[in-house]
Amino acid sequence: MLVDIQNLRIAFTSRGKRFEAVRGISLTLGREKLGIVGESGSGKSLTARALMKLLPKTAQVSADTLRYDDVDVLKASERQMRRIRGGRVGFVLQDPKYSLNPVKTIGSQIDEAWREHKRGSARQAKQATLDLLDQVLIRDPKKVYASYPHEVSGGMGQRAMIAMALAPNPELLIADEPTSALDATVQAEILRLINDLVEKRGMGLILISHDLPLVSHFCDRVCVMYSGQIMEEMAASDLMNARHPYTRGLLNCMPSLMHPRDRLPVLAREDIWLEETAR
């Protein structure tokens, strides 16, 4: 098992008031593709960040278990975590514009990610980088290698980000809204690419998104989060049979090209969803 989270809680204190953003989440992950879906503020990104110990110091994190493979994340030192982040776990974030360093070429940034964990020569690094850029289906790797982030399109930048995440040959890829800044045509390509790479390398994948149908296309399992809790967990293929009214409501309120409706049903939020259930 790669990830084991039991009863994870994340709270923030602001102006004397304590606010619990994640309230008792439990989930496990093997070498499989897990989708975490939820609206803004549901705590989906916080959960992934807590796993990598990337939360700001003001966050109060507690859990019965928070393990990455054999490492107890709650007790792990910053050095141990550094070896996991960007080594055993790769990250792809929403907007390549903000995640790539604007004053360095794409190639040198991937080189660096590779050398950080593989400790090879500059020549080996360059060879590995070109190979990676080729793997993310960039047609002209040499040109992109020498480009700066602002010189490439959004889709190309996101491919470069994926190449960088894959450089140290990680066992798990965490993709946080990897395509929400991209066009529909590019979005499909990028997700297919992530999917193929994850399957080919036998990696685990955590795909975080607000787009329920999109996630269910690319994942084995889906967790639906609402207000810091997991409402429902199911096989992606079961999405149409979702039982929880929140999941059903989310699916229902999307406009559809093929099935036109005069009015969209509005999601009625029930207070009972907010109540914590004993597990």
Binding site: E232, E233, M234, R243
Partner: peptide, 10 residues
Amino acid sequence: SSVSQAKPGA
């Protein structure tokens, strides 16, 4: 399919 674990309250 069968396996869908919904949270009670559904």
